[in-house]
């Protein structure tokens, strides 16, 4: 099983998914991220899915779970870089990812996190 690396930049964690995710890797990432948020006292998590070609119900559920889990650990999550074909497919599959914040790219994701944090000190 391949593991997705979690990078730290100040008090933000950045995860860029560059592999074809198998279910075991998805579960490992959830755990690694929860540990990393607590260990580093991170306030923000950015998940970059620019290279992800499909999001099915399992991967979609992971994104929602990570966002919920991070919120409970006092960190905000932004998913960035979703491809248009992935967005269309997700909606038709029936997954709206209601609780997950998104931004078009990494730069906008960082700006969104800054904005959220200035609004909620």
């Amino acid at each position: 099983m391949q593991r997705v690396p979690v990078l730290k930049l100040g008090d933000v964690l950045i995860v860029s998914i560059q592999i074809d995710l198998e279910d075991q890797s998805v579960l490992a990432l959830q755990e690694d991220l929860a540990d990393a948020v607590v260990d580093h006292g991170a306030r923000g998590v950015i998940i970059d899915i620019t290279a992800v070609e499909i999001v099915d119900s399992f991967i979609g559920r992971m994104l929602a779970t990570i966002a919920g889990m991070c919120r409970m650990l006092d960190a905000q999550t932004v998913v960035v870089g979703m491809r248009p074909a992935v967005a269309i497919t997700l909606v038709e599959l029936g997954l709206s990812l209601g609780g997950v914040r998104t931004a078009l790219n990494l730069e906008k994701g960082v700006a969104l996190l800054d904005h959220i944090r200035s609004a909620t000190p």
Binding site: E53, I54, D56, F58, R83, P84, A85, V86, T89, E92
Partner: peptide, 17 residues
């Protein structure tokens, strides 16, 4: 098309899982 590729790959992933 790219969108249809994405849809059939996603369906395949669900059914295989």
């Amino acid at each position: 098309s790219l969108v249809d590729q994405t849809k059939i790959v996603t369906a395949a992933s669900e059914l295989a899982r």
